[in-house]
Design a binder for these strands. Structure first.
Length: 476
RNA sequence: GCGCCAGUAGCUCAAUUGGAUAGAGCGUUGGCCUCCGGAGCCAAAGGUUGGGGGUUCGAUUCCCUCCUGGCGCACCA
């Protein structure tokens, strides 16, 4: 530290010495991918559940946003000292799967020459027909020999497996690799939801009304009580979901965070109520709502309607703009803000596109090091850095020093957009330096020192892009 | 009607959770390549932070109220 000063009410300014900033550079290079590591989490086990889309239809663009956000959050949390885990909840049981089976069965029967209507509340989408066609091409008409009930049951399992495989492929292509795809059916098979029901009942937190079993969630802050067992005797999605969340704690997670879509915010209080009723601390279960995505083409919002069948699928958007741009654009905004995704902009390979701005900076940095080597100036992390005295050099060093703080902020606030904002700032700070000063020149000692600055900058950009799982190109 | 979220430069968004002169990108205007990548840089213009109250040394941030937009208010998931 160089000096303290008191400047106005509430401000104490601390000036750090030039040597402090210079010493950061070899540290960054030595740390490599570990630069930015902090001990915020202290090894705490934390689970992030995200996407968890129903396997009854294709993944949409909201899932693509959630997938990018959840994936990056876990990476950042791990860097911040947590033991973080990616999980996907597969709703592979219950009413909707029966409807999936019935819908596919109707299309299948129709293809086999026995015209049948898709049930009123079934799935009408084009993809159901595709599924039916695929199944028929594999199995022929043989399922027509079963009675209608068995056929629907059989087809629901086949369709489920196929949808699930598609979802896994889409996530894989998107570079999201879950630690676990958790099956709802496994909870049901083990009767875990009935265990929950019994516990709540023993605590006197349930009652019967109009033939259904209710949970007194209002005792724990919910707006109204909720049904656990329907009049028909079926467990609700809610009951099984309580069991799922309880199971997370039983598997050793100390904190469980869910990322949900905006249409689920009314659901938060009841799950929180149930977990509190079961004795878990309120603050260990948190839900972040990820707002909607508006797809734009040439500045116009693309109208999407599930009914009309013109939804944009996750796969389509990733195929069209590429994984790098898609991930970047979906991370770019604060979770609370609706996100405008301009498809044409994401595809542009120009300065209008922030992805290319950052990737360009990395390619340029890499190239400078190559150029230095060609000129006989090797990268030496222990070079004498006292020759670095330009304001633009210190601006870059200060920016590099911010990185661990960015990691902390993202981990504490669960807001990954700070990473893309930071990358733009770092790239911009470096470009300003680069424009004004030459790295490789006749002054050997200055060249060596600046190469250290370049490599440290390259390392941080590389690390940040790594967290985003966006490629850091050596040339473009 | 009730609840959640948003409203910041012409456009798309930030602002280290209450701090200093509210910052970037795009767009506009004017400059910069004999030279490590011009996919870059510099400069200028552009703001009553949706309106109005309040809290205090200090508010984009917290509270109240109103306006606008999105979403939700199932024995669906």
């Amino acid at each position: 530290m160089e000096k303290f000063s008191i400047d106005g009410p509430g401000f104490i300014n601390v000036t750090l010495s030039p040597d402090y900033w210079r010493s950061l550079l070899p540290e960054i290079i030595a740390s490599g991918a570990k630069y930015g590591e902090i001990d915020l989490g202290k090894g705490q086990k934390i689970q992030i559940e995200f996407v968890s889309a129903n396997p009854t239809g294709p993944l949409n663009v909201v899932s693509a946003r959630a997938a990018a956000v959840g994936d990056v959050l876990v990476s950042v949390l791990n860097l911040a000292g947590f033991d973080a885990w990616r999980e996907y909840y597969v709703n592979d049981a219950g009413r909707q799967i029966r409807l999936l089976g019935a819908s596919v069965a109707a299309r299948y029967a129709t293809l086999c020459g026995h015209a049948e209507d898709v049930p009123e509340d079934g799935y009408q989408g084009e993809y159901i027909i595709d599924l039916a066609k695929e199944i028929r091409s594999e199995l022929g008409d043989e399922l027509m020999q079963l009675d209608a009930g068995e056929r629907a049951e059989k087809l629901s399992q086949i369709a489920l497996d196929k949808m699930l495989a598609l979802h896994r492929q889409a996530m894989d292509a998107y570079r999201v690799h879950y630690d676990l795809w958790f099956r709802e059916s496994s909870l049901r098979a083990a009767g875990k939801h009935f265990d929950v029901l019994n516990v709540l009942r023993e605590k006197g937190l349930t009652y019967e009304k109009e033939g259904a079993v209710w949970f007194r969630s209002t005792d724990f802050g919910d707006a109204k009580d909720r049904v656990l067992i329907t009049r028909e005797g079926e467990p609700t999605y809610f009951l099984v979901d309580i069991a799922y969340h309880k199971d997370k704690y039983e598997r050793g997670f100390e904190k469980i965070y869910d990322l949900w879509g905006p249409d689920h915010h009314g659901y938060i209080d009841r799950v929180s109520a149930a977990l509190q009723a079961l004795g878990y601390a309120k603050e260990n279960f948190q839900v972040r709502i990820i707002q909607q995505v508006n797809m734009l083409r040439d500045g116009e919002v693309v109208k999407m309607s599930k009914r009309a069948g013109n939804i944009i699928e996750m796969r389509e958007i990733v195929d069209e703009v590429g994984v790098d741009a898609a991930r970047y654009f979906f991370i770019m905004r604060k979770l609370d803000s609706p996100l405008d995704f301009d498809i044409e902009l994401a595809k542009k390979q120009t300065d209008e596109n922030p992805v290319f701005y950052v990737q360009y900076a990395h390619a340029r940095l890499y190239n400078i090091i190559v150029h230095g080597r060609e000129k006989g100036v090797e990268l030496e992390p222990d070079a004498d850095l006292s020759v670095l005295n330009e304001p633009e050099e210190f601006a870059v060093m200060r920016k590099l020093g911010e990185y661990p703080e960015i990691i902390r902020r993202i981990a504490e606030l669960m807001e990954p957009h700070h990473l893309t904002t930071y990358l733009i700032e770092l790239a911009s700070t470096f470009h300003s330096f680069y424009q004004k000063h030459r790295v490789i020149s006749d002054d050997r000692s200055l060249s060596r020192a600046r190469l250290v600055l370049v490599e440290a900058t390259r390392t941080v950009i590389h690390n940040a892009l790594g967290l985003l799982k966006i490629t850091a190109p050596e040339r473009m």
